[in-house]
Nucleic acid binder design. Structure first.
Length: 202
DNA sequence: GCGACAG
DNA sequence: ATCTTGTCGC
């Protein structure tokens, strides 16, 4: 999308099976491969990328937005619909109000009210950008809905693709089966490894 | 040991 | 995330 007009410039998608389970704190391992697949199809070079997930508001300050920002060497922002880690005071009810999110004595993001009286979204820098700029961009990308337009449009596109695929292939895409497919494709040792407490300390 | 836990 | 039931505001 263009900024600040938010015109859609390109729409691309990527379909495949997930090969890693959803584990809080390890979302990148499950979704990054597919996101990279879709991003590889984009012709234009984005100036910045907004992700549906955390940036540095992560136990190890490495949410999916940060992870991919570093990988792609591109500025990124994390905008999650719910909290992973950190504490915050409820922000004011007006659209645009926000309060900082902190963990272990450091500010890692903010709870931003993108819609009056609605649950806030959690914004945190991915990489190559600061918190205040991240908040400003998310707000300027938000219109009448809770989610910033880039993320909302992405969700709508996925819904569109999925429905078309379901009717054309007779058998719908077992979206919930991502669980089933996952268990059958993730090597046993891999799952055991990541199922332990704080596996990154091993 | 118990609770929390992006999508 | 997905699913189901019911409610509130434009």
């Amino acid at each position: 999308m263009g900024f600040p007009r938010l015109e859609i410039l390109e729409k691309k998608f990527f379909v495949s099976q997930v090969v890693f389970p959803y584990i809080p704190g390890l979302l990148s391992f499950r979704e990054a491969p597919l996101l990279l697949g879709a991003l590889a199809k984009i012709r234009r070079e984005p100036d910045i990328i907004l992700f549906d997930g955390q940036g540095i508001a992560h136990p190890r300050r490495m949410g999916i937005a940060t992870h991919l920002g570093l990988f792609l060497q591109k500025p990124t922002i994390g905008c999650a619909k719910s909290l992973l880690v950190g504490k915050y005071l409820h922000p004011g009810g007006r659209k645009g109000s926000y309060s900082f999110l902190e963990d272990k004595g450091e500010v890692i993001g903010a709870a931003v009210r993108t819609r009056k009286e609605k649950k806030p979204v959690f914004v945190s820098p991915g990489d190559g950008i600061d918190l205040m700029t991240s908040i400003e961009i998310v707000l300027r990308c938000t219109g009448r809905y809770r989610l910033p337009e880039p993320l909302r449009q992405a969700h709508l596109l996925v819904k569109e693709i999925r429905e078309e695929f379901e009717e054309r292939s007779g058998q719908e895409i077992p979206s919930r089966l991502s669980e089933g497919i996952t268990e059958g494709h993730v090597p046993r040792y891999t799952y055991k490894y990541f199922s332990r407490r704080e596996p990154w300390k091993r």
